[in-house]
């Protein structure tokens, strides 16, 4: 598509310049500094940079050999998949259902948003109480109905993945839900009208009209899911802290924070940040290659 309206390129500058100027000053300039930081020795955030690492790319070599980093990458890959399948999946189902629910739709729209407004820290504390080893809600419940006799350590090596992923997935379903609902509302009414004249009923319109037309919005969700999973931080940090159990639960976001603030290895943390960005771009491009966006 290249409409005649947009042949003259002069106004484009006015459209793009303000936003990109902001991004250059407040995002790209600092991030270039971050890239440079990943090559020099810095022990403590806010302290001056020291000598250049020997060799200058040593942080990146170490990253490849760091078992915790490899764990973080694996977990993040799992999280990306789970986010796409469940987070976006559940949100899509809920959005389609709410769209045809009619009565009460507004109520559901409002309450599905609740988990996102509560800060990750507060939710983390709540989930910690649910999964608490001694006297936690889940253990109490399972003991009362006789499913377990001893307390289960939900953060041990057998259970940690589910304990970490469930709250993360649950929290952000509402986010994708709101985006998808908006997408559904943007679909032009004539299309539905035409379809109903052709005799298409509820589920058929959903399958043949809503879903294909949601394609772009779903693609946006895909990109947001990938980038979101790579940098997710607060909820897993409050629940799993320093890679509980035994450095098994690291995610790229939590590992980066841990190295920068807790371990005071700022240059190493900067290198992780660079990897996060590179991975995000590469995976999004891959997604772009597989599911292209379409113009209408």
């Amino acid at each position: 598509m290249n409409s005649v309206i947009y042949k003259k390129k002069a106004p484009l500058l006015l459209f793009l310049l303000p936003a990109f100027a902001f991004m250059m000053v407040y995002l790209y300039y600092p991030f270039v500094r971050n890239i440079l930081n990943s090559f020099v020795e810095i022990s403590g955030l806010g302290t001056a940079a020291g000598a250049v690492n020997q060799p200058w790319y040593s942080n990146y070599v170490n990253l490849l050999q760091d078992p915790s980093m490899i764990t973080a990458l694996k977990n993040t890959a799992i999280l990306i998949l789970v986010t796409i399948v469940f987070q976006v999946g559940i949100a899509l189902v809920l959005a389609l259902l709410t769209d045809r629910a009619g009565k009460g739709a507004q109520f559901f729209r409002t309450v599905y948003f609740f988990p996102i407004v509560i800060s990750g820290t507060a939710l983390g504390l709540m989930f910690n109480l649910i999964f608490l080893y001694k006297g936690g809600m889940l253990n109490q419940l399972l003991q009362n109905i006789g499913l377990i006799s001893d307390n289960v350590d939900w953060k041990d090596e057998k259970h940690f993945l589910l304990t970490m992923l469930l709250p993360v997935i649950w929290q952000y379903v509402g986010f994708y839900f709101v985006i998808l609902i908006t997408g559904l509302n943007n679909i032009s009414a004539d299309i539905y009208e035409a379809a109903s004249l052709d005799g298409a009923d509820g589920w058929k319109t959903t399958w043949y009209i809503s879903l294909p037309l949601l394609r772009n919005v779903l693609f946006t969700c895909l990109i947001l899911a990938i980038t979101g999973a790579l940098k997710v931080f607060d909820l897993p940090w409050v629940m799993m802290g320093s890679g509980i159990p035994m450095d098994r639960s690291w995610l790229t976001g939590t590992y980066m924070y841990n190295q920068t603030f807790i371990r005071a290895d700022v240059d190493y943390g900067s290198a992780i940040a660079v990897i996060i960005v590179i991975l995000g771009v590469v995976i999004s491009q891959l997604a772009n290659f597989i599911f292209r966006e379409k113009d209408y």
Binding site: N128, L132, Y133, K134, N151, D153, K155, D156, F160, G241, I244, P245, M246
Partner: peptide
């Protein structure tokens, strides 16, 4: 504590406070 490798500090301090 059984879960000393997965528990938070707040959780283990609580053990003393609760008489465990």
């Amino acid at each position: 504590p059984d879960n000393t490798l997965t528990a938070s500090d707040a959780e283990t301090v609580q053990l003393l406070a609760d008489g465990d």
